[in-house]
Each structure stands twice: as C-alpha cells, then as structure tokens.
Amino acid sequence: MTATDIAIVGVGKIARDQHIPSIAADPGFTLAATVSRSGGVDGTENHETLDALLEARPDIPAVSLCMPPVPRYEAARAAIAAGRHVMLEKPPGATVAEVFALERLAREAGVTLFATWHSRHAAGVAAAKDWLADKNIRRLRVDWKEDVRKWHPGQAWIWEPGGLGVFDPGINALSIVTEIMPVPLHLSAAELSFPENRDTPIAADLTFAGPGDIDATATFDWRQEGGEIWQIEIETDAGTLKLTEGGDRLFIDGAEQEVANAGEYPELYRRFAHLIDTGASDVDPAPLIHVADAFLLGRRIVTAPFHD
C-alpha cells in the first residue's frame, strides 16, 4: 500500500493532540507538510500560508484543515480549486451555506470532500445505531457538560461570532444523535445563555420535535466542574440505551456492552483514505443545521461575565 502525502493546515491543540498522532500511525498517509504561522512540526516542512503550500507542493494531493471554522471556507475553496482532496475538522463551516457550497465545488472539481464528525466514530456509536434501528423511541435526553477552561484554555476564537461557543462541544453530541436516531428530529425551542462579555453562548437548552410523542431534549454547559458529563440516554419500547464518556461506553438496560475500535481520529483518517480511493465524498450538514436552528429559535439569556 502506497501512503498518500497529506498536509495539515492549522497546527493548534487539536492538530497536535489528535491529527498528527493519527496520521503518524496510519499507513495510508504521510505527513508531508504543515501550514502554520506559529510554528509547525519538528522535522516537517512548514509554510506560512496555504497559498504558499499549494504553489510549492503540487505533489501533495490531500489537506486536512484544522483551523477554526470562520477561515475554513476560504481555505477549503482554495484547496479544492487547486485539485486537492480536503478533510474538514468539525464543524465543517461557520455557516450551513458554506458547507453546501463546498460540496458543490468539490463535486465539480472531482475531488474528495470529507466533513468529519469525530464523535460519530466513538466506540459505542455504531452498535448503538444498530440496536436502535428497529426500536420505537419514547424519550431522548442529552447531557453534554464540560469545563471550558480545561478544554479550550485561552482560545478566544470560540467566544467570537462563528466560534459556536458551547456548541463547539455540543455539536459532538448532535453528531451522534443525528447518526444513531432511527427517526428524524428538528429543533422546536432553545434557550441560549450568553455571558454579558461574550458573543457566543456558554450554555444551551434545546427541545426537539419528531414523530409521535417523542420527548427529546439536550443540555449543553461549559461551566461544569468536577469532571465531564458526556452522555446520551434513549428510552425505547424495548429498553433504555445509554452512551457515556462521549460515546465510548454503551449500556443497554444498565448492562455494559462490549465495544471497541481504533479511536475516533484514526477512524477518520481511515475513512478519508477510503473516500479518496473510491472517488467519493462524505458531507453531512445535519448537526450544523441543528446549531443554526438553535441560534434562529433561541431565547437569549444574559449571564455573568466569563473570564479565563
């Protein structure tokens, strides 16, 4: 198997924690270059800008975009125009329209576009989807709570327009829900809590509507202390399913199920390689649509200032 050269654009925390180790362990890819103004990866060629990379290295066929969502569209558009396959960190864009535009551009250019949702590749998600497939859903409860100071220290962009605020982690839960639920849901109400000194919410309460009398809600909160709560509980006519630890552990009626996989980001790169090999794309905007609807429907609540 011949490895595909790939470049990482945006060498921040998520790139160093997840993308770089996953590429290093994947026989399908070789990290050939990076794009970063603040320093790249030791021993790897670095470029100051994406345009510089695209001009200097026409031999690199794939790029993984790990920068914040607001500048991601222009970077993806430029890479697609240069004939490169593109992998997008979540969320795939700052707006839903951007995602549809990139999908069209990739299709016209004949390149692969992979809009990733890493939490869909957590160990318990596929098994949860299979178990729920023939069940009647009665209740969905999502609790996704963490400490922003721990997971996003000093990252000012998350508090700026387009940064999503608490929906940055919350969209992970939505990506799982939209993957495993056997029936479609749409947002019917939302309350968004904004610190008085920030432009994005620190907490959100969502209510969904769907077929029948489904009771479906989600709570996201960035003020959690004493450990993360990343869980989804679904009551059905045949028992209760629970995913905990971000989808890594699966319980049916309280009994833990045996699940295993290679890890979320290694699975993403395995999927990206398959898409490139088969000439396909994978672009699902459903989680981002829920977030956009929350901003459209959400009742704004102003809360105490937040300081790092």
Rank of each mutant, 00 (worst) to 15 (best):
G254N: 06
V86S: 09
P27Q: 12
F306K: 01
A32G: 04
G239C: 08
E191V: 14
P201G: 10
L296N: 12
I158C: 03
C66R: 07
F100S: 11
G227W: 13
N261E: 12
N136M: 12
V11F: 09
G124D: 05
A115Q: 05
Q257I: 10
N261Y: 14
D51C: 04
A115L: 13
R16Q: 11
T240R: 11
S193D: 15
P69N: 14
P201H: 06
W117G: 07
I276N: 01
L250Y: 04
A33K: 02
W117T: 04
W117V: 07
E98T: 06
R104N: 02
R77T: 09
V283W: 05
A126I: 01
S64V: 13
V11G: 07
A106C: 07
T44C: 11
E55P: 00
S38P: 03
A101C: 01
N261M: 13
E267R: 15
T219V: 15
P287M: 08
S119W: 11
A280F: 06
H186W: 12
E89G: 10
S175E: 09
D215Q: 14
E256L: 10
M67P: 02
S64I: 07
H121W: 14
H118R: 12
I80R: 00
E108M: 01
A3H: 10
T217Y: 07
T219P: 00
F272Q: 10
I232N: 06
E233G: 01
G93C: 02
H47N: 02
H307T: 13
T200F: 00
C66W: 07
G110T: 05
R77Y: 08
M67R: 00
N46D: 12
I80T: 04
A62F: 09
A82Q: 02
W157G: 03
L288G: 01
E179D: 14
L88S: 07
R300S: 10
I180S: 05
G162R: 12
G43M: 01
V63R: 00
E55Y: 03
F100G: 15
A190T: 12
G28C: 06
D143P: 00
E160I: 06
L187H: 01
V9C: 07
V99T: 14
L296Y: 08
G210I: 08
I6M: 05
E267A: 15
I60D: 02
Q224R: 15
A203Q: 04
V99W: 03
A126H: 05
Q224W: 02
G154R: 08
E228Q: 14
S119D: 13
P68G: 06
D284G: 04
D42T: 15
A32Q: 00
A156M: 10
R77M: 10
V96I: 15
N172G: 09
L54I: 09
I6G: 00
N136S: 14
H186V: 09
D5Y: 00
I171P: 01
D277M: 08
W159R: 08
D215W: 03
D253T: 05
L241K: 04
P153S: 09
G28V: 05
A115V: 11
E264V: 08
H85L: 13
G247H: 02
D59G: 03
V283G: 10
G170S: 03
T34W: 06
L296A: 15
G298M: 13
L132H: 05
A3K: 11
L288Q: 11
W151L: 08
T44D: 04
A292V: 12
E235N: 02
A82S: 11
L268C: 13
